[in-house]
Every structure is written in C-alpha cells, then in structure tokens.
C-alpha cells in the first residue's frame, strides 16, 4: 500500500522537494474523493485547504450573475487547485468543481503556513514548489486574455 508521503512525493509540484521537507509537508495532508458536480472550493469561503489533483478533472470557474458559469481552466492530475490560501485574506476567488469523480490530496493551508513560518528553509522550499506554478498560471492567463484565435487567420 502506498503511503501518503510517497503519493505526495510523486506529484509534479513537489518533484524537487527534499525527503525531510516531504515528511514535514505530509503532516498537513490527507486524501479526498469528490464526486462529479461536488465543489472543492467556493468563491468567498475561507481557503483553509487546497488540493492537488491525483485523478479526475475539476473546473476552475466563475459564475457571473444570471449566466452560465465561465470555465477558466480545467485542472487535471498533477495540477494544484487554488492559490488563494497563499495570501490574505485567505478566501477563494473562484469556484472549483469536480467535472468527474476526482481524487485529490488536500493540504491544510493554516498548517502549511505555520510550518513555513517556523522553518524558513522549509518555507523557501515550498516557495520554490509553488512559485513556478503561479508564474505558469499568470502566463496562461495573459495568453488567454489575448484571445489569440480571434484574429482572422487562426
């Protein structure tokens, strides 16, 4: 049977994490199973826990009033669901909905932030895990805003 620590260690976002830091991180983690249609997080609610998708798909979406929700990004295996837990006020800025049965690792955000404050080496290692993900998301959002296929040729 796979241990939680081993499962976490196989996640893309933690690929460079040292074993001692992996053990610290595992203390904040637990497994989740979401059924299709179930929300991993809802806009405005406290971002107490964030998720790393292990299996299945989830939609990051925002619902304008009286309109269908707009899906901004589909998250799949290896993706980190949500970044609102990183910065105050620690509240979700979008909904994340399971599109199909989704298995995820949940990381207790307060637990992780506390360990980062206590052990700055661990905190720096975490920053190196999450910063590339944030930059990738920022670059993707910029490209999405450009609406590159709206031009006449593509």
């Amino acid at each position: 049977m796979e241990t939680l620590e081993r499962v976490i260690g196989t996640q893309r976002v933690f690929a460079e994490l040292a074993p001692e830091h992996l053990a610290v991180l595992t203390g904040c983690a637990r497994n989740h199973r979401f059924t299709a249609g179930q929300y991993l997080c809802r806009e405005g609610l406290p971002a107490n826990e964030f998720f790393i998708i292990r299996q299945g798909r989830a939609a990051l979406e925002i619902a304008p009033p009286a309109r269908h929700a707009v899906v901004l990004e589909t998250l799949g295996p290896g993706d980190v669901a949500g970044a609102s837990w990183l910065i105050p006020p620690y509240r979700w800025s979008a909904d994340i909905r399971a599109v199909e049965t989704t298995l995820a690792l949940g990381i207790d955000a307060a637990c992780l932030r506390s360990k980062c404050e206590t052990d700055h080496d661990f905190g720096y290692a975490m920053m190196k895990c999450f910063l590339p993900m944030l930059v990738q998301s920022l670059n993707a959002a910029r490209l999405q805003v450009l609406d590159v296929y709206a031009g006449p040729y593509y």
Partner: peptide
C-alpha cells in the same frame, strides 16, 4: 484538445494549449 474559453456545458479541457504540455 483544449478551449481558450467555454461555459460549463463543455465537458472537455479549458485553458491555453501550453498548459497541456505537462500532461
């Protein structure tokens, strides 16, 4: 296959195409 934009009626992937690379 991914779409730059879609509503919740689309059950496929949404996001710009470079996001598919790690998959």
């Amino acid at each position: 296959v991914t779409m730059d934009r879609a509503d919740a009626m689309w059950h496929g992937h949404v996001g710009v195409v470079p996001l598919l690379l790690p998959r």
